[in-house]
């Protein structure tokens, strides 16, 4: 592990000044569950690490008139169903609880979770590829079982987005607050996780002098119920093979409103708009739900070893809706 300098700012202003002053060489430190692994495997080499954990303003869940704001350094274990302001966002608390292990959840922050790098086995085993600054993808024709099945024709990197919480956040109106010494911006989550394709090495639109300070979720429509479903081979300590989140408003058997997202199948959480359209405003039946899920996956393209994800995604979408609407299907 390469040596680095650890800075502990006392205020956000001071932290931002430190970033400003370190000319792109600094990394923010949340729980360190990802950053330290990146450094250890030479995927990141920041000369300076700026520890955000002491900044009280960045931590905790606050409700506001328009929704909730979750501080970037809030630990995933704090995003629990016991946290009152989060009760309208069951999908999020379920996704947070599905992350890794209790040890990881106690340490990992939400900000860090949204900034994590892909878990592609090639990237993590030191192969040269788009995401490590190269110009090739060795996974595409190799061990492809973890790779994306949706939207992959548009990207050079086929790694899936690893985050569980990001999938759940995608069925709400979620914006990420980015702050730098020169100002701040509120970026919709989908946009935050979609750097320009010419920037294949990056995972977010975060600039090197910027920090995530907050994740804001707008209050859902009244009556919204949501759920998150994660499919993994191992019962814990595993990233999703596929996952799905659903937020639904049911009204006398009718799906008045629905938002769906898939995880583990694309380079970013995948809004399942085709399925949403097929379900929205209609009576919810098992057959309609299944055909909507299948329609969503009709666009899937698979490689040699990741075809099974199509079935998992279809099943996960159905299950997320089933759980969200409870016994009403």
């Amino acid at each position: 592990m390469k040596p680095f300098k650890l800075l502990t700012p006392e205020s956000l202003t001071q932290a931002l000044a430190m970033f400003w002053g370190s000319e792109g060489k600094a990394a923010a430190l949340g729980g360190g569950t990802e950053l330290l692994n990146l450094i250890r495997t030479s995927l990141s080499d920041p000369g300076v690490i700026i520890d955000l954990k002491s900044l009280k303003r960045l931590r905790g869940v606050r409700s506001s008139r328009s929704g909730v704001a979750i501080g970037a350094t809030t630990q995933l274990s704090e995003l629990s169903p016991q946290c009152r302001p989060l009760q309208p966002f069951a999908a999020l608390t379920q996704a947070a609880a599905a992350v890794g292990t209790p040890q990881i959840r106690n340490r990992a922050t939400l900000g860090g979770n949204l900034c994590q790098r892909p878990r592609c086995l090639y990237l993590r085993s030191g192969f040269d590829c788009w995401k490590s600054g190269g110009t090739q993808c060795p996974a595409r024709h190799g061990e492809s079982s973890g790779l994306a099945i949706l939207g992959a024709e548009r990207t050079s990197c086929l790694a899936v987005h690893p985050s569980d919480p990001a999938v759940a956040l995608s069925v709400f109106d979620t914006r990420v607050k980015l702050v730098s010494a020169s100002g701040s911006r509120l970026v919709p989550l989908a946009q935050f996780l979609a750097p320009h394709e010419s920037d294949a090495g990056r995972d977010t639109v975060l600039r090197s002098d910027e920090l995530v300070t907050e994740v804001r979720i707008a209050s859902p429509r009244p009556g919204t119920r949501s759920a998150y479903v994660k499919v993994a081979d191992r019962a814990a300590f595993s990233f999703a093979l596929a996952s799905a989140a659903a937020a639904c408003v049911m009204d006398r058997g009718m799906l008045r409103h629905v938002r769906l997202a898939l995880g583990g199948v694309a380079g970013a959480p995948w809004r399942a708009r085709v399925a949403e359209e097929a379900l929205q405003g209609r009576k919810l039946t098992p057959a309609r739900l299944e055909s909507a899920a299948r329609a969503e996956l009709a666009a899937a393209r698979h490689l040699e070893r990741n075809g099974y994800k199509v079935d998992l995604a279809i099943g996960a979408l159905q299950e997320a809706v089933e759980r969200a609407v409870g016994g009403r299907l």
Binding site: L121, Y122, S125, F127, P138, H141, G142, E143
Partner: peptide
């Protein structure tokens, strides 16, 4: 990796 034989 089926190409290089390196463990993934």
């Amino acid at each position: 990796d089926p190409g290089t034989g390196r463990q993934l």
